[in-house]
Design a protein around this nucleic acid. Structure first.
Length: 271
DNA sequence: ATTGTGGCCTGCCCGC
DNA sequence: TGCGGGCAGGCCACAA
């Protein structure tokens, strides 16, 4: 075996794109009525909702609509309440036995019944399932969204200006969900790489022109990677490794840590 | 108000 | 072949 190509499993860590895929899949549950909920791992119910309350509220209620704010998936219930689902780093949504990510990718990571944390059973016999090996995700009724910034998929230049105002590093601000909701480590690295901006720069040092460019890049990158199938399909992604080189100019990529997150950037064209 | 750190958890990969 | 250490893309609490 050659062993030249880096072996990195296709991963589907839920950033904004994956959660939007989950939301589209969850659309299949709209209009359907629940029969009961299975909280297969009680600790998966967090925040202000108790397991008993969750079980009671999700028995015999219809799904009215779905929405998403950043990485938070919301199922609006006919009772007027919302069911919020966070996916952490390893959460997956499966509706009626079908995953949002296409079969090949999904099979690469597999699935195990022991990872199943939460299931809504519908009266029609189908179900909505959250599978999450690491249990870093959670479900909660009426999650507080007041701390979330504007959704990255529709962020305007003005909203980005507000998000980047104040102190702090550029990457840290973009990752902080209270400033911009939805961007994760992969998308931020990809967007900054495409924009030619150094993640270490103070956020406030980004000029108006650079900000406008970054806002446009965020929108088109999300659209493009959505079309490609996920946030791990960025141009930079294959080079996110120790020997990685910039796909643009061939420079050896710089590997640093910001806020505990591994960051890859190009020292030649990101400044 | 913001950054940095550790913890939460488990799976996976690598080296021994 | 098996084992132990290190690492992981999110998020939260906490300290500084």
């Amino acid at each position: 075996m050659g062993g030249e190509a880096p072996r990195r499993p296709e991963s589907c860590v839920p950033e904004i794109i994956e959660v939007e895929m989950y939301r589209r899949l969850a659309e299949r549950t709209v209009g359907r009525r629940t029969e009961r909920v299975e909280l297969l791992h009680p600790e998966y119910c967090r925040g202000d909702t108790s397991p008993d309350e969750l079980i009671a509220e999700l028995a015999d209620v219809a799904i009215s609509s779905t929405s998403r704010h950043g990485k938070l998936l919301l199922l609006e219930l006919s009772s007027g309440r919302d069911l919020g689902v966070r996916f952490g780093m390893t959460g997956r949504l499966i509706v009626d036995g079908e995953a949002a990510i296409d079969q090949l990718e999904y099979a690469a990571n597999g699935d195990s019944p022991s990872w199943h944390r939460f299931r809504l059973r519908f009266r029609d016999g189908g179900n909505l399932l959250v599978s999450d090996p690491r249990r870093l995700g959670a479900v909660e009724l009426d999650p507080d969204r007041s701390g979330l910034g504007p959704d990255a998929w529709s962020i305007s230049a003005g909203e980005l200006e507000i998000a980047l105002s104040g102190r702090g590093g550029l990457k840290a601000r973009l990752l902080n969900q209270s400033h911009v909701a939805g961007l994760g480590n992969l998308l931020v690295d990809e967007c900054l790489w495409r924009s030619g901006l150094d993640p270490a720069r103070p956020a406030s040092s980004v000029s108006g022109d650079e900000r406008a460019s970054l806002a446009a890049t965020i929108l088109c990158t999300i659209d493009e990677l959505d079309a490609r199938g996920g946030s791990h399909r960025g141009d930079l992604h294959a080079e996110r490794q120790h020997t990685g080189v910039c796909p643009l100019d061939g420079a050896a990529l710089q590997r640093r840590t910001f806020g505990g997150r591994t960051t890859y950037s190009c020292p030649a064209h990101q400044s």
